[in-house]
Nucleic acid binder design. Structure first.
Lengths: 213, 213
DNA sequence: ACCTGAACACCGTTCAAGT
DNA sequence: ACCTGAACACCGTTCAAGT
């Protein structure tokens, strides 16, 4: 507001524009650009221009463009973890909880394809993924593993290695989400009906009772 | 061989270098580059240089870079169709055939990640996919649909919409393949053991007999 | 018909310089 | 500490020109 005064004990001169949190602003602007223009349209120059900042300003906060993309991916995994955990808790676990987790996962991926593409589109180079990224990724995975362990304890599903079953279920939701994002699922019947069908099949796939033959 | 002579009724002067089939050479060189350097490393300039041709020569054969990538994707779908059909036929159909198809699909994707990434990595823009590309894609999908119809006729699996079940199975193999390519599956137990586990779960998922409760 | 070379408008990254 | 502007080595694409 006041364009001149050094108000009290402010450290930064008021007449000079400073981002309070340029780092977060960069991540959010990157997401906006990916969503609007695709991963290929997210350029450092465009981000700088939109933020009113030099196109090299981001090098104060990230090692390079890859590191910025890794931060986007981390945020995506965090969202997946929170959404699936919330779905499980909301239903109070059980088969309803497992179904709700699958719905939440696929819906989140379709609602935030920019995040999802960064995580699973091969855009983050293996060198750029750090320990935080890996922790965020396995945190999201563990929500699913814990859900399956809980179902095992209740005697509702088979006793196979829960991490192996979790990868089976993960592959299913991940495949559905990716096919939807890539446009390989026709609008009719649509991803929603496929997801419902798949949730029924998955429940049977994990079921305990023996089959004839 | 003979560097000078105009041998008989040859149309092209022998002293001038001509690719017999520049179009195919471009596709193959693009694949080599994607495999070696990743999708980002596949540049038109590098392709031209490797082929001893101007970097704009490809515009005689493709509308733009996107069209070249679409051709790569088409070839990938063709390979998937041939590999899954061969697996089904080799086993003479049945549950063994369905299992072999899933193994063939995931193994092909892991063996040719460059093709797979082009098809499912969001690198081909929607505008660039033509009628041939779509035909190749649905041809690969139809192999799976026909296999499920055959299993239904034998009374081995449930009578749901075969296209819906095919998308369920496709999502599972696709998810497994993508997670493996992206490095999200640990070496131990590895993609192979996960695939074997999943094939058992899928068989039960599609099975006929009713379950208690 | 098929290919070229120069030119154009981009891109990520480096680096000396400013405050 | 944080940011800038110029420079460098790239990129896809266009286009007049060559054969």
């Amino acid at each position: 507001m006041a364009p001149s005064g050094t108000r009290g004990r402010r450290k930064k001169p008021a007449h000079r524009y400073h981002h309070g949190d340029l780092r977060n602003a960069l991540v959010e602007e990157a997401l906006r650009l990916i969503r609007a223009e695709g991963v290929g349209g997210m350029t450092l120059r465009a981000i700088g221009e939109r933020l009113g900042v030099s196109r090299t300003a981001l090098y104060r906060h990230f090692a390079d463009k890859q590191a910025l993309l890794a931060a986007v991916g981390q945020e995506g995994f965090r969202m997946l973890r929170l959404a699936t955990q919330e779905a499980w808790d909301r239903e109070g676990g059980g088969f309803a909880g497992l179904a709700a987790m699958q719905v939440a996962y696929v819906n989140l991926a379709i609602a935030y394809p920019a995040h999802y593409r960064v995580i699973f589109g091969g855009v983050v180079a293996p060198e750029a993924v750090g320990a935080e990224f890996e922790a965020e990724a396995s945190g999201a995975f563990d929500v699913l593993v814990q859900a399956l362990v809980s179902l095992q304890k209740e005697g509702l599903i088979r006793g196979d290695d829960p991490r192996l079953m979790a990868r089976f279920v993960w592959a299913r939701v991940h495949g559905t989400a990716m096919l939807a994002i890539d446009g390989y699922l026709p609008d009719d019947p649509g991803a929603g009906r496929l997801n419902q069908h798949a949730i029924g099949r998955i429940r049977r796939a994990l079921s305990l009772s023996p089959l004839p033959e």
